[in-house]
């Protein structure tokens, strides 16, 4: 696996080098503080972080480490309490809810542990969902959805409802949905948490392929085996980054000396 993996990493590095310098996410001294009754919880405590386009990053940490909060911020689902976070050049602390929705729609594709597919809805319509919210709406959204289902190997299942699909197939539908609006970031939150190890490996292989094609993959996980697929692993504990391993030349270049 090591040799195989290394080869993939090398290819990815080549790609990243081609895009070197295009910074996608920059967190500067980001904190997130929750008030819970009398208690104040510092979920993120002054985190700074750069992620360049084309990277394959795993965000790791135990529960309560701040990794989920970081994911919510990178996913433009939330705004930082202090510090600045820019995604694709836009400061999410300064955006309205509607602008955040548009940013999520166009720039970020979400993949969840529990797939979050709509009940009683065929795969094709699941994948079309983000396009229904796109403004302006691209022409022929059905063809776009079909293309993405083909890409994840489910073109023969486009009429199937979630109940008629296996867990791995459901997650593939969810990935097709995440890709359909051609986002820059694929943000996956424990994407293999509900899958067996064989299926998990298939899904991770798919992420690796997608990353090779140029999309930035950010993986939130607590499993080291899954994180091993990523080229770069960022460890969180108590709301801070404790380790940032495998930081590629691209992000070093993009981020400079920080």
């Amino acid at each position: 696996m090591n040799v195989h993996d290394r080869a993939k990493v090398d290819e990815a590095s080549v790609l990243r080098n081609r895009d070197a310098g295009s910074l996608l996410i920059r967190a500067t001294d980001v904190s997130k503080i929750y008030e819970m009754g009398e208690q104040t919880v510092r979920a993120l405590d002054g985190v700074s972080l750069d992620i360049a386009e084309g990277e394959f990053v795993a965000i790791m940490g135990a529960s309560g480490s701040g990794k989920s909060t970081m994911m919510n911020l990178i996913g433009a689902l939330d705004r930082p309490t202090s510090g600045t976070l820019t995604i694709n050049g836009r400061d999410i602390g300064a955006l309205s809810s509607d602008d955040l929705a548009d940013l999520r729609n166009k720039t970020i594709g979400f993949v969840f542990q529990q797939f979050n597919l709509l009940a009683r809805t065929p795969a094709l319509r699941q994948v079309m969902l983000p396009l229904l919210y796109a403004q302006p709406r691209p022409p022929d959204i059905e063809a776009l959805a079909r293309h993405r289902l083909d890409q994840v190997g489910l073109i023969s299942r486009l009429d199937h409802h979630p109940r008629q699909l296996s867990g791995g197939q459901q997650q593939r539908v969810a990935i097709a949905r995440a890709l359909v609006n051609n986002p820059k970031i694929l943000l996956a939150d424990e994407p293999t948490g509900a899958l067996d190890s064989k299926t998990s490996e298939d899904i991770m292989a798919l992420f690796t392929d997608l990353n090779k094609d140029g999309i930035t993959v950010i993986l939130v996980t607590h499993e080291a085996e899954i994180a091993a697929f990523a080229q770069r692993r960022i460890h969180f504990r108590d709301g801070r980054i404790t380790e940032d391993e495998g930081r590629g030349p691209a992000s070093v270049l993009a981020g400079g000396a920080r």
Partner: peptide, 15 residues
């Protein structure tokens, strides 16, 4: 959860 998903994929409050 469905509402959350719709918001995550770009549904605005108005939608």
């Amino acid at each position: 959860r469905e509402i959350g998903l719709r918001m995550a994929v770009g549904g605005r409050s108005g939608d």
